[in-house]
């Protein structure tokens, strides 16, 4: 079984026992229950709310549990213009999120400063925290956010943290 297809399971021949790799199982669980930290700072937050509502329904991808506490969040969705006045608050909330954590820069402003080439606006949240997925648009439609979320899920499915730890352990021993 590969990392990419942890679901290849035949109940007739395998019964209640599933053989897989720990990495694959953990990645599968993580990627399908991403709890977002909604960092809504401007108009992108409206689209983020639309993505969470009935029509687009982000819960189809397991990411409907918007946590307003960073300590319970997995993915920070930076939705909107990050002013310098807000920048260190965003950083602080990011630092309070437990590992593993991911970041989606939603929209032009969060990705690059957007049209605000200004003395007051941080030119992209990636100058402060590491970003996994950038979503273009001003603001992006909810479909674009869902697409970004699926890209992030794909990225998480390819992670191999346990395998790396095991390798490091063997090398240490």
């Amino acid at each position: 079984m590969s990392d990419q297809s942890p679901l290849s399971y035949d109940s007739k021949s395998e019964g209640n026992i599933i053989f897989t790799r720990l990495d694959a199982a953990i990645n599968w669980m993580r990627s399908n229950s991403l709890w977002p930290m909604p960092m809504g700072l401007a108009c992108c937050a409206i689209e983020l709310m639309a993505a969470g509502a009935a029509r687009y329904d982000i819960s189809r991808f397991g990411a409907e549990v918007m946590r307003f506490s960073p300590r319970q969040s997995d993915v920070m969705i930076v939705a909107g213009t990050v002013t310098y006045k807000m920048a260190l608050a965003v950083k602080r909330i990011w630092d309070q999120m437990p590992e593993p954590k991911w970041c989606i820069a939603m929209g032009a402003c969060a990705s690059s400063g957007g049209m605000y080439r200004s003395y007051a606006v941080l030119q992209g949240i990636d100058r402060l925290i590491p970003v996994d997925v950038y979503i273009s648009g001003c603001p992006p439609r909810p479909e674009a956010l869902l697409d970004g979320l699926m890209m992030l899920q794909k990225k998480i499915m390819g992670e191999h943290a346990i395998a790396d730890q095991k390798k490091a352990l063997f090398e240490a021993v």
Partner: peptide
């Protein structure tokens, strides 16, 4: 485009 500044722990700014 602004000027760089830094108030530690509160805010910083760079030139856009």
């Amino acid at each position: 485009g602004g000027r760089p500044s830094d108030v530690p722990g509160l805010a910083f700014s760079e030139t856009a």
